[in-house]
């Protein structure tokens, strides 16, 4: 009986806090994406001829992010019937955007206006031996430079 109460309590806590945190995070992401929109990212590895690059430095942004108890429970149910796991989709989406924003922030602090060869990496850092996806680490990195186009 007490197990059931604890389980329901965790579900309610997870739902309310998780929802609040996610909404707040998305608002902050959208605000900062506007702020850093002047830094251009590209996955191009070799800059095109005719553009001049000044300075180059490795920049990286990373985040470790976790789903709440409620969403993990939902995902467990979803595992039975298959299909899209929306709760994990938003987790990874938030993580990626956050990592990219942190990388952009670093690039901007160094006065760069472009990041070349952007690479993303995702690692699952779960405590219980990978049985359930707990928390993920997302890393974004690239080379920040300042680009001036030759006339």
């Amino acid at each position: 009986m007490s197990n059931l109460v604890l389980f329901l309590l965790l579900l309610v806590l997870g739902y309310s806090f998780g929802r609040y945190a996610e909404q707040r995070h998305y608002r902050s992401i959208i605000r900062r994406e506007k702020e850093y929109s002047d830094v251009v990212l590209t996955t191009v590895r070799r800059p095109a001829p005719g553009v001049e690059l000044t300075g180059s430095e490795l920049v990286a942004g990373s985040v470790v992010i976790s789903v709440d108890y409620f969403k993990r429970f939902l995902a467990g149910l979803r595992n039975l019937i298959g299909g899209r796991m929306t709760s994990y989709e938003t987790l990874l989406d938030r993580g990626r955007r956050e990592a990219i924003l942190r990388m952009k922030q670093q690039a901007k602090a160094r006065g760069a206006n472009m990041v070349f060869n952007v690479k993303m990496e995702t690692a699952s850092i779960s405590k219980d031996g990978g049985s359930a996806l707990g928390s993920v680490e997302i890393l974004a990195y690239g080379t920040a430079t300042t680009v001036t186009i030759r006339e």
Partner: peptide, 22 residues
């Protein structure tokens, strides 16, 4: 981090750890 696994959100302790390690 275990508590954060209930509430969801960023595990800043681990972010920091991985940043330093990197």
């Amino acid at each position: 981090a275990g508590l954060k696994n209930i509430f969801g959100g960023e595990l800043s302790g681990y972010t920091e750890l991985l940043q330093e390690a990197r």
